[in-house]
């Protein structure tokens, strides 16, 4: 029953995302043979250091989705307080309550079965715009975000250009 329910739900979400795509986000299964692995393209939010970039990420869904959340990982180079060096995204909506090694605030929004891929991707866009520098996914990025914003912005600009296939700025 579990994997069947998960598949039904993922197909419904895909249809919904195709009919009503949120601004700046494209997402869907890598191929329609396997609905449990999606790719997403996220546009860097306007007015932030990630503006203009198009960041590809991969979402992997568990067989008991949506009881459990998917895992999400950027497949381009990223430098951000809430993204691990290997691209994995660390935000509270991707965690069930109790699943809590990062010490999120107890008030942070957690995974629940009425969340969705769309909600996750919108949260990731907010995360790009407003990093949570309490989270230790990338300690160096968090430190630089706090203490040397100019340097952080320079790295972000290079990453943005990289996603567009452009050479680093002069």
């Amino acid at each position: 029953m579990m994997a069947g329910s998960a598949l039904r739900r993922l197909m419904a979400e895909y249809k919904q995302l195709t009919l009503n795509p949120p601004e700046g986000i494209i997402a869907g299964p890598v191929n329609e043979e396997n609905f449990f692995e999606w790719e997403a393209l996220i546009t860097g939010p306007e007015g932030t250091c990630f503006e203009g970039g198009i960041f590809p990420a991969k979402l992997v869904f568990p067989p008991d989705y949506p009881l459990s959340p998917p895992k999400m990982q950027f497949i381009c180079e990223m430098f951000h307080p809430n993204i691990y060096a290997d691209g994995r995204v660390c935000i509270s909506i991707l965690h069930a309550p109790g699943d809590d090694p990062m010490g999120y605030e107890s008030s942070a929004e957690r995974w629940s079965p009425v969340q969705s891929v769309e909600k996750i991707l919108l949260s990731v866009v907010s995360m790009l715009a407003e990093p949570n520098d309490e989270s230790g996914a990338n300690v160096d990025a968090a430190k630089m975000w706090r203490e040397d914003r100019e340097q952080f912005n320079r790295i972000a600009e290079r990453l943005v250009r990289k996603t567009l296939g452009l050479p680093p700025p002069e």
């Binding site: 430098f79 060096a85 290997d86 990338n138 160096d140 990025a141 630089m144 790295i155």
Partner: peptide, 24 residues
């Protein structure tokens, strides 16, 4: 412009991942 840990094999980052993974 990038500190060592923004490459994909930074030691400090790896050890923090392992600890979180361990707790989970």
């Amino acid at each position: 412009d990038a500190p060592s840990s923004s490459t994909f094999a930074g030691n400090s980052v790896d050890s923090s991942i392992n600890q979180d993974e361990l707790i989970m």
